[in-house]
Amino acid sequence: MLSVTEKQAIDHEIALVPYKKASVIEALKIVQQHRGWISDESVEEIAAYLEISPAEVDSVATFYNLIFRKPVGRHVILLCDSISCYVMGYPRLHKLLEDKLHIRMGGTTADNRFTLLPNVCLGCCDHAPALMIDKDLYRDVEPALLDDILKKYE
């Protein structure tokens, strides 16, 4: 069941658009904010609330890469794998992160602390290579800085 807070936030979005269905992306964002990811149950609950089919909600949920259809760790690392970062050292960071966290790209650490995901250009190519952890952007990431950065996230 959608919580009262979730419903209120979704209602606020519905009021801004001509018909309910148009707020499905906002609804997914809201539910993900509260639950960390979008489960099959969440898809069904959103569908029921917006009066559309679960398949319709899922077609949208699976299209956008920052809607997570699988559980993620407490912190999500988005590593830029686009061109300027590629030139400036992304491949090394990629390997180092996988080794340090003992996971592959797309994986979550056993202690559920981090999920590692590739991401397109983060819009700070003049400070490549770049990565984001949750809402924090890190620029000019030297391999030697990685440990200190990761330490901040428990």
Partner: peptide, 11 residues
């Protein structure tokens, strides 16, 4: 939406 790789001007 600025997502063209290598683009960081609108930011």
């Amino acid at each position: 939406d600025e997502m063209e790789p290598g683009t960081f001007k609108d930011r």
